[in-house]
Amino acid sequence: MGYNIQDVVDIHRNMLSNNIMLFYEGAFSQDIIKSVLKFTERKLEYIETQTSVKKKVFNVMVECLQNICKHVESEEGLIDTKSMFMIAKENGDYIVTTGNPVNNDKVEELSGILRKINEFSEEELKSVFKSLLKDGTSKDYGISGLGLIDVARKTGSKFNFDFKDLDSNYRFFILQTRISY
């Protein structure tokens, strides 16, 4: 595919019409996470007036971004693979979407954890969070349980997720959450 100017203009128009505040594609590290947070915070300064909403968006972004790192670090050979992060605004809500490869064997466990979290009430999320905090990591919630439960609590919304085919060993894990207020 040749990248002529029109292709780039189309990508830009698409970003504008979908209110995409930031789309990052590539590898993730703590330095990149800090940069992504800084970019988004600056944008939020202009478009968001409520401090509590800004803080919530920041909180959810940190957990989602560090979640990508955890998946990638837990898997040798995934370090150089392509992951993605996107934040967009829709009717006043903020939509955070992450994508990263996960090993086929993790798919069942991960979707089980997410389904379980999606079924919890606010009170259940609170008590599971507290017991995980006190007792450390739990087999029931994997490496990213505490972070995912925190996101579910802070957003008050259910996760959307999917696993797209990538190759024979990996699937592309897409996770999406919505911050409404």
Binding site: K55, E63, L133
Partner: peptide, 12 residues
């Protein structure tokens, strides 16, 4: 001002 979940364990 803010702490992530990984820090919440250490604060505990």
């Amino acid at each position: 001002d803010y702490f992530n979940t990984a820090s919440s364990k250490l604060l505990l």
